[in-house]
């Protein structure tokens, strides 16, 4: 398996290249998987009826049975996926080469690449400054360009408001869909995560990619520091050595609670360190979801 780490990705310019590199890594990994599959598979025969596509007529069956049958393929039940990327100010934080937003873009781009490649529909929901910018799910190859283009232009700014996204998605996703959320979940609104996870109750398949920077995990600061908020005007001057223990306790509790909440809601949870190989993240995710089908 050729792992594509964040340092290498940081040297690549743009989401397209980075996503492609990750996809290649993922595909390289999938070939070695015993669960390799196809996105378009024969499912059953159906007697021809007017309106069916003639290109799907099974001429071999007509030769044997003298009746017209139409092949039905599984891809006709295409997955509809919405990739929700948090573009709040805190997502711009990054100490390992890529910011959390960069990692989210790469993961979202690579996943959309994989989905569209297997004829699934991939849409994008960018959440920035409380607004939702959407690309509705499509399975066409040209749509991939739109998705990647939207990811490319996304910048981090403003406060995190996942509850707004959850409400919008719940309203717009009529059909059962896969909702992949890429966020650090630094949302101070009451019950934001719960509202996002409530999509699962609406029979949507929800997967959470919890993005964490190593500096947030380890808090490696010593000298007196003035910390500035990346989402608003708040700042605080502290001696990091004095609060490190308390910070780490708070932060890990937050991580644990987020994971526990996801587990309780039957939501797939993936914690992503921004310094770890992203293809490995996707492979881990795909393997968990059964043989490469997203």
């Amino acid at each position: 398996m050729a792992l594509v780490d964040a340092t290498m990705l940081a040297r690549l310019s743009g989401v397209r290249l980075r996503a492609r590199a990750v996809v290649e890594g993922v595909l390289s990994g999938l070939h070695k998987s015993p669960h390799q599959g196809q996105s378009v598979e024969f499912s059953e025969h159906k007697e021809y009826a007017p309106g069916d596509e003639l290109r799907h007529l099974d001429w071999k069956a007509y030769g044997k049975l003298d009746r017209f049958y139409v092949k039905r393929f599984e891809h006709e039940t295409n997955l509809k996926a919405v990739l929700v990327v948090d573009a709040s100010g805190s997502m711009a934080y990054g100490t390992a080469g890529l910011s959390k937003l960069d990692v989210a873009k790469v993961l979202a781009g690579a996943l959309s690449h994989l989905l569209i490649r297997q004829q699934d529909a991939a849409g994008l929901a960018l959440v920035a400054q409380g607004r939702l910018a959407e690309l509705p799910p499509r399975a066409t190859p040209s749509h991939l360009n739109h998705v990647l283009g939207a990811l490319e232009t996304a910048t981090a700014a403003g406060p995190t408001d996942l509850s707004h996204v959850a409400d919008a998605l719940a309203e717009r996703l009529a059909r059962r869909s896969l909702v992949c959320v890429f966020s650090d979940f630094f949302d101070e609104h009451e019950g934001a995560l719960q509202r996002l996870l409530s999509l699962r109750a609406r029979r949507h398949d929800v997967a959470v990619f919890h993005l964490v920077d190593p500096a947030e995990l380890e808090f490696p600061f010593d000298d007196p520091t003035r910390f500035l908020s990346m989402e608003d005007e708040r700042n605080v001057e502290v001696n990091p050595r004095e609060i490190r223990e308390s910070y780490l306790e708070e932060f890990h509790r937050f991580l644990d609670e987020t994971k526990a909440a996801c587990g309780a809601a039957d939501v797939d949870y993936e914690r992503v360190r921004t310094d770890e190989p992203l293809d490995a993240v996707l492979l881990r995710f795909l393997a968990r979801r059964g043989g490469g089908r997203a």
Partner: peptide, 12 residues
């Protein structure tokens, strides 16, 4: 003091 923009300010 050093000035550092920090994502997880809420925990600080």
């Amino acid at each position: 003091p050093r000035v550092v923009p920090f994502g997880a300010l809420m925990f600080v």
